[in-house]
């Protein structure tokens, strides 16, 4: 459905190395606007490194990352965040010393203008911005993600699945144009996974946000994605629609090793539990 639209994110010939270790080699792919694009691959394939390059945390050795048609390679992470690149982290990076509400509000940081002097006086702009932000966070994000019962709790006291949801809330507060989810359902039970899948689809359809996700849960990837990119040893070995990718023999071998191809195919397509 979204294959024809222009790419919102374009990665071209990206290479990343830590000393002699080549993490990514000439990786190229595009993320169509309005799509759900999944990056899959075995452990250590370079998926999270890929994310870190896009959010500006790693500096790639060569190659270009173009966001909405402009090269963002020289920008610092906060500048990229301001452009609308939001992400969540594989190992949940919430701020333990803050409540759920403050964690979510923090996401809006780059889009606010309150200066130090406004903040000290809590007058004029500070008061207006904070009140507006509170209303928006409450009505758009907290209601949507069904986390109103925990809004004043410190994040350290939350269960794992809820923390993941709060992290998604914080990313949504960043006014994202593209939302990068690093293993959004890892470690979740079936119910929590279904909730998260519903939220991801709603974000895409109601908020019009493009989604780029790394995920190991093949069932989820098959159900949600419009477009799948397969990485192995830092290289793209296949890209395309979910069905095309999972019937690709290279992918099956890379992803699951050797064995009966027909069984592996069914595993990859989510018909048999891995």
């Amino acid at each position: 459905m979204s294959d024809v639209s222009e790419p919102i994110l374009e990665v071209r010939d990206l290479s990343l190395a830590f000393g002699g270790l080549k993490v990514l080699t000439d990786v190229s792919y595009t993320v169509p606007k309005g799509s759900v694009t999944a990056i899959i691959g075995p452990n250590g394939a370079g998926k999270t490194s890929m994310f870190n390059c896009i959010s500006g945390f790693y500096r790639p050795k060569s190659g270009a990352i173009r966001f909405q048609g402009t090269d963002i390679g020289h920008l610092h992470p906060p500048q990229r965040a301001e452009l609308g690149l939001a992400r969540t982290f594989q190992n949940i990076a919430l701020f333990r010393g803050m409540t759920v509400l403050d964690n979510i509000k923090l996401g809006r940081h780059a889009h606010m203008k309150t200066s130090l002097f406004d903040a000290l006086a809590y007058f004029g702009r500070a008061r207006r911005e904070e009140t507006e932000l509170r209303a928006e966070v409450e009505e758009k994000i907290i209601d949507f993600l069904e986390i109103d019962h925990i809004r004043n709790k410190p994040v350290a006291s939350l269960a794992y699945g809820l923390r993941k949801r709060v992290e998604l809330a914080r990313a949504l507060a960043m006014k994202p144009k593209i939302l990068m989810l690093d293993e959004p359902v890892a470690g979740m039970n079936r119910e929590e996974t279904e909730d998260m899948a519903r939220f991801i689809l709603d974000v895409k359809e109601e908020w019009g946000v493009t989604i780029l996700m790394v995920e190991h849960d093949m069932g989820l990837v098959m159900d949600l994605s419009d477009h799948v990119v397969v990485l192995n040893f830092g290289q793209v070995i296949a890209a395309g629609k979910p069905a095309e990718v999972t019937s690709n023999e290279d992918v099956i071998r890379a992803y699951l090793g050797s064995g009966d191809v027909e069984v592996l195919r069914r595993t990859v397509q989510g018909e048999v539990a891995a």
Partner: peptide
């Protein structure tokens, strides 16, 4: 006041 605003959160 500072810690009710974006600066304090940062």
């Amino acid at each position: 006041n500072l810690f009710r605003t974006r600066i304090g959160r940062a």
